[in-house]
Write a protein that binds this DNA or RNA. Sequence first.
DNA 1: CCTACCGATCGGTAGG
DNA 2: CCTACCGATCGGTAGG
Lengths: 199, 199
Amino acid sequence: MSPRRSVAEALGTRSAILNRSVAIASAEGLEGLTIGRLATELDMSKSGVLGHFGSKEALQLAVLDRAGEIFRAEVWEPALPVKPGLTRLRVLCEAWISYLEREVFPGGCFFVAAAHEFDGRRGAVRDAVESRFDAWRGRLRKETLRAVDAGELPEWTDPDQLVFELLGLLMALNHAIQLHHDTQAAGRARHAVQTRLGG
Amino acid sequence: MSPRRSVAEALGTRSAILNRSVAIASAEGLEGLTIGRLATELDMSKSGVLGHFGSKEALQLAVLDRAGEIFRAEVWEPALPVKPGLTRLRVLCEAWISYLEREVFPGGCFFVAAAHEFDGRRGAVRDAVESRFDAWRGRLRKETLRAVDAGELPEWTDPDQLVFELLGLLMALNHAIQLHHDTQAAGRARHAVQTRLGG
DNA sequence: CCTACCGATCGGTAGG
DNA sequence: CCTACCGATCGGTAGG
């Protein structure tokens, strides 16, 4: 009868809001995600939604966190049990290709989309997006260095150059799938990764 | 005294609206481009702005056309006097790198941004963006085929594969400049293009 | 977690 | 090209 919910219920509600938010923001962007639409789809009032976060910006940051958890589980964690260096680098690339191919987020890579939406702005959301890319780039770079140290890649390999090119392939794949619905692009991305990393 | 303008004046006004629109949409996106903001910045009424186009969608399509003219002048036309085949392909890539480096559009490549903004939607704007990418890809592909026919690239070259990889490099560069303000990325893009196309 | 509200802004129209 | 307006929606707040 009471509108007040227990802590557990409140956490469940918050989680439900974030799940729905990720789905909406993936398709419409983090700005197209509106409190009113969330409230309607969740059969809540706007203030009920907003109460869990305080502001739209705080909601957007929480959505980025949730999307990050999904990305981590889909792309990063499968590579953790794998031997560091070239093997792990290959698994990371394949996991990202698969993640794009399966459209884990219906709008394509959540962070590539967020980067394009916020790169021309300032604020906490933009900073959060940038730091996530820095972290991801750093991980690819670290595995590249390990691979060079282990003699799995030529010693003249420039890690930043290689990572730049790998990121380009992943962005081209994301673009080909989302804009052109190109089903051959994943094969091209795999082929290009193989040219650079062998396998 | 009259609010009615001559045909020449009306065309000038329309052109002024489009110039301002390109600047706004490059930074804020084609959806963030609003009639009200345009009217304020141009010291016009909203209906005065809208009268030139009829609807926001028609305005967005006209803005894409104007942006296309700029892209054409910056990237395509410099390559026209150049010998077809590998040489022209190199000039096209260099022109695009330079266009991104000089930030001809302050928000990065206008069409990459539009693709990300509209790839999850339907309608005339999305279709216009996709067909522009098809045209651009077709041009790169044609020059690649010419280069292969002329023996300037190995006969086993897969044109679609090469174009996919070149587009990836350009997207990685766009991303590095816009999100990370990375001043070394243009050099990496040039190096990667050179690895593929020689020079 | 709700209702009820705020000022601002959206795309667009009527009528001139 | 204008003024004056329309209904819808935005993020957010007061008060409970």
